[in-house]
Design a protein around this nucleic acid. Sequence first.
DNA 1: ATGTTTGTTCCGAT
DNA 2: CATCGGAACAAACA
Length: 283
Amino acid sequence: MPELPEVYTITNDLLKNVLGYTIRGCNITKGYIALPTNDTFTNTVINQQIVDVKRVAKNILIHLSNKSIIHFHLAMTGQILLKETDSFAFKNWLRVLLNIEKNSYTKFLAFNDMRMFGKIAIISEAQLKTLYEKYGPEPIDENLNVERLWQKLTSKRTTIKNALLDQELVAGLGNIYATDSLFLAGIHPELNTKTLTLEQTNKLVAAARQVLNEGIDHRGSTLADKMYVDIFGKAGFHQDHFKIYTKEFCPNCSSKVEFKKINGRGTYFCPKCQPLEVQVSMF
DNA sequence: ATGTTTGTTCCGAT
DNA sequence: CATCGGAACAAACA
């Protein structure tokens, strides 16, 4: 489930809580595959110190002292949990359990993934470079070049909603934050990217930046299924601040919110505040 | 039982 | 040939 704010929260908390720890044990649940292979994964991480934790788009990267990197992608249902004891970890959906130690103090770092769309992999510095290169700019980056993004958007033939989910175009938005960004920018999710104006793109980037930053401030969104929790197992609270996602009535004009599947993803929008046709003045 | 679900990738179609 | 849309990946829940 995690989108940028959730991954951001996890990455920041990991940085504060596992830096300097050395991986002393690695246990992969029977039947699960850590990439490239379980043996390679285990042999590469064992006895390595955690020297940095970074994030790119929705990926979490744990840098090790031997220059290799643990690459996590949580996809829909991945979780990373940090605990003082390992008793918790043997409940639901545990895939990989790392035993980490610093000054004889031990913690457990678990990778859970119910649906197994996520991944945990050991990658090289060269592979990491490739990973970074594949993503478009993030809206929370103040240096994002709006005009360049606009040019790329207008060169595509799809809906703006679909384009916002294309991580190679712009990174970090998922279904929830893309939906709320479009509402905040007053843009219909089915607007053809070809017809998007530079002014609309400016509004959209500003909206996405606001929505993502609010999500970060609220430590992410936890839906009813509780699939997203932080590394301490605590829920986020941005779900209490959604703009239009899951809403029945528009917070702006109180008209009925429309729900529609766009490219297979549930999309909420207000037909009145997010008109498809540009409002033309009568005079 | 059928239809949902926060993400990404692959394959057939355009 | 590049690009797009839908299916698939797998599991739980209503």
